[in-house]
Computed example of a mutant assay.
Amino acid sequence: MSAGHATTSAGGPEDGSEGAAAARIPVLPASAAQVLTAVRAAAAPAVTVAEAATATGLSRPTVEVALDRLAMLGLVDEVAPDPGGRRMGRPARNYRFRPRAGHVLGLDIGKYKVLAVLADLDGNVLAGHRIEVDPAQPRKARLAATRAAAKAALAAAGVTQDRLWAVTAGTTGIVDREGRIKLSSALPEWTGLHLARSLGRTFACPVLVENDCRLAAVAERWLGVARSVDDVVYLLAGMRMGVGVLNGGVLQRGHNGSLGEIGALPELGWNTAPGHLVDDPDAESSEQAVTALIAAARAGDAAAAERIGRFLDAITLGTATVALAFDPELVVVGGGFSRADDLVRARVQSALDTLCPMPPRVASSELGEDAVALGAVRVALDHVEAQLA
């Protein structure tokens, strides 16, 4: 998978941000990179010099030099030999990868919340912190909440900011290749913000920025219902509509970063679809109203079920349009309706079966509200791994 575009922005504090020294991703010689890959790919917890030499095709002396360098950089540990082992001669040297040699941070900067998730280099989540935000908050306040969430996640894991190797932020809107928000209808004050540069004043490591729906698609393929599926459409369905597309396991962005923004076509009805769910889609309480509507429909409220049905009917044509354009194996329904699989999946599947000659399967998200932040973690890890290769 590939996504996002790194913008390494290091600068002094601005707007209350806190600058930090950077933890540089080590630049490895080709031989050391090969050996590191072999150590990480091994099925066993630790790898001997001989095993690393066999896996890489490098000579034993070359592997020994590479492992010594990796150990000096903190990327591997030499494991003490088993004291109970019965073996003649010098014991074999064993090495294992150190996943906490560095860390990555995934950020989900949304209309109602900011979520920060910290992970090690194996993708193990170490901590997370969520801050609720007012949808009407100005840009500066939302950025301050983002920094506060990141700081809290780092503190919870006992990790200092200089141990971050990459940060990825997901947010609503059209994001260009430099990490600038070109257009955001959900957060109008976000339009024009160079988010990568703004966050780069806080984080001295590479900062990547991507559309939130695309990151959710990445997360579902990594940890969610789309594991091992290469061709995926992630459908954000709720008070905001959006799409993320993976083709051949690669995240699709388009030339301007606007791929999948079919809500721009009024004929498809996506912009007006939330009005079928609640009377005032822009109200701060709209998300809670949808949750209550789902509960009422499950309890047998015919009027609530009818509202949900009208909403699903309104988004069907747009969903089929994306499916026909990208021919996915799987459509993942995310957003608020990922919690309503019993009300949504069969109806969306039936519509796609009718409209698409080769209909994809439909499934509900397994990651829910964590999908964007987890996708951001995965993209940050991809960036680190590309630098280490």
Rank of each mutant, 00 (worst) to 15 (best):
M358Q: 13
L330S: 08
A371W: 07
E51K: 08
R240I: 10
M241V: 10
D162C: 08
A32V: 12
L126F: 05
R177C: 11
R139I: 14
T291H: 13
A297Q: 03
W222G: 05
L317G: 01
W190S: 10
V27I: 06
L195R: 00
P81I: 00
T48E: 09
S338V: 02
P206A: 06
G244T: 11
S31E: 15
R361P: 10
P357M: 07
R345I: 15
D313A: 14
D162R: 01
A119P: 07
A127R: 03
T319W: 02
D82M: 05
L330D: 08
A23F: 04
T319F: 05
Y234E: 09
G242I: 06
A156P: 00
P206M: 04
R197Q: 14
A289K: 11
E178G: 15
P138G: 11
A22C: 11
L187M: 14
A3R: 09
L355R: 05
L223F: 09
N94E: 14
L265Y: 14
L121N: 10
T62N: 02
L293Q: 03
A376H: 05
A33Q: 06
P274V: 03
K140G: 14
G12N: 09
S258I: 01
Q161S: 09
M88Y: 12
S184H: 08
C205W: 01
L277N: 03
A314V: 08
N247R: 13
M1K: 01
L235K: 05
V331Y: 12
G334E: 08
A20D: 07
T54K: 13
V49P: 07
C356M: 03
V245S: 07
L164Y: 01
T191S: 15
A148T: 12
D231G: 04
A42D: 13
T54G: 08
V159R: 02
A101I: 08
S338Q: 13
A346I: 13
L355H: 11
C213R: 08
H255L: 15
G200C: 02
D280F: 00
W270C: 13
A351H: 12
